[in-house]
Every structure is written in structure tokens, then in C-alpha cells.
Amino acid sequence: MTDVVPNRVMTWNLCNPCDASNVDRAAEIATYAPQVVGMQEACARDVEKIRDYLEVFYGLRYHVAYGSVLQNWSRCGGAPWDPGGFGQALLSAAPMTDRVEVEYPEGGSEDRGYMAVTTTVGGQSVRVFNTHLAQRRQEEFREGQTRVLAKAVARSERAIVLGDFNAVPDAPELSRMWALATDTDPACGPAPAAECAPTTEWQSKFDYVFLRGIAPLRHRVVRSEYSDHYLLHTDVDPTRAVTRAARPAR
């Protein structure tokens, strides 16, 4: 049996539609056993199966919270009159409270949103956000979406923001996030010359663990054959804040 790493969080875009087994997805998550997992492009039925496999095969017990923004038969199956929920989801080894689910006013070519919960990471109460921003080449929509998200994140002195932002670090629409938080990779920032490891098969960094009032300890980007996005997990110290604040991109 596997034990969760109590101060580890992970973000992963599952890729949908993709030909991937939920057994394999669960195995990938169990390899790193994070306290909290944020998933994007997630079908509610798939997440439920992943959670069950994590418990049955690895002894990892997670609570689940959904942030579905679509009911989508083509992506998530189900009967046409009862399609599956599609969007974000969170798995947490500790209970989650104060769940908020927000659909962005303008999603771009597909509805998008964020979800937030309060849970325990590293023995501390932390506000955790999970989001998926508008698709590539839809910068004008992502700018409005980050405005909504940043306003919510700013209310928490200690927050972790997980997600697929569909934007490289120096993209102007991410400036509001950089003004509030730092990336889990201390070498990664909004400067064009920053060294940010890619998190996608097309060698762009689109996936982030933004930390506000929380110090990063170590992180890892892991290629996965089950998605076009890599897994990004990080260990954090919620009792210690980052001493150097990030600067906006411009």
C-alpha cells in the first residue's frame, strides 16, 4: 500500500478525448501519491473510476470535488439525455470544504471556469484553486479569465493555484497571476529569458502550480504516455512564505 505525501500537490491535464485507460491514469497518480491532485479536461465518470482504482489497487483514499462546466456527451459519454460532466476536478486526501465553482463569463471556443476548495496541505489549511483557461490563440479571453481568477486568489493569504493556463510564462494575460504568486519552479518567471521547463508535448509551459504565501521545496515535471500534457508535482512548505515577490510581466 502507498501513503500520500502530505505536502505534495499535482496538476495534470488528462487530455480529452484521448485513448487512455483510467487504470493507467490512476497508476501515474499513485506513483507520486500527492495530497492534492488537480485535473483538467476531466470527465466526472472518469474521475470517479480513477479514485476507485487508487483505493482498490494502492490503498490511497481521496475525497473528490467536481468543477464541471459542461455536460458533454461526445467527450464524456453517457446517454444523450444524461451526458457526463466535463471540466475540472480535485482529489484530496483530506476533506474539502467551502467549495466554489465558477464559470468564466467568456470561455472562448469552449466554456471554461475555475473551482476552489479549502483543504489541508502539509498540515495547514490552504485554499486550493484549479482552472483551465481558454485555448491557444485566444489571448483576449484568457485575459478576462485571469482577471476573474486573480480577484478570487487575492482574497487568500495562503493559496495554491493549479491548472492548465494555455499560455507561456511571459504572456501578458498571466501578469495578474505573477503579481500575486510565484511559480513552484524558482527559476521560472514572467521574464522572456526565464528557464521554465515545458509541460506539453509541443514543448511549451502551459501548466502551473502558482504559490501564494507558500514556499516551494522541490518539483518535478514528468512525461506521460497517457496525455499530451506532462504531470507537474511539487512539494511545498505552507508554514513558510516566499520572501521574494514575483513581478508582473509588464
Rank of each mutant, 00 (worst) to 15 (best):
D164F: 04
D237K: 00
R75M: 11
Y208M: 02
H229R: 05
A152R: 11
A152H: 14
V236M: 04
G189N: 14
S125R: 12
A150L: 08
A44Y: 05
P169S: 06
T239K: 13
S156A: 15
R155Q: 14
A171E: 03
D98Q: 12
L90T: 09
A93F: 08
P192Q: 05
Y62F: 12
Q135I: 01
T97D: 03
T2C: 07
C15G: 06
R250L: 09
W202Q: 10
F206H: 07
S227Y: 03
A27K: 12
R244M: 05
S125D: 02
V69E: 00
Q40K: 10
A93D: 07
D111A: 15
V4Q: 13
P238G: 08
Q40R: 08
F141K: 05
V222Y: 01
E101W: 00
P186R: 02
F57Q: 12
F86P: 11
V148A: 03
R75K: 13
T118C: 04
P192C: 07
S74N: 15
A215H: 13
D185Y: 06
A27R: 11
F129I: 09
G59V: 09
N7E: 12
P186E: 05
V4N: 14
E195K: 14
H229Q: 01
V168H: 02
T97K: 06
V9Q: 05
F165S: 03
E55W: 12
P6W: 04
F129H: 11
G123R: 06
P6D: 14
Q88L: 14
A27L: 00
T243R: 12
E41K: 09
L149Y: 03
I29V: 15
C15L: 10
M177W: 03
E225R: 11
Q203W: 00
G85F: 06
L211H: 06
V242A: 14
P186W: 02
C188N: 00
I214Q: 03
Y230R: 10
Q124C: 11
V102W: 12
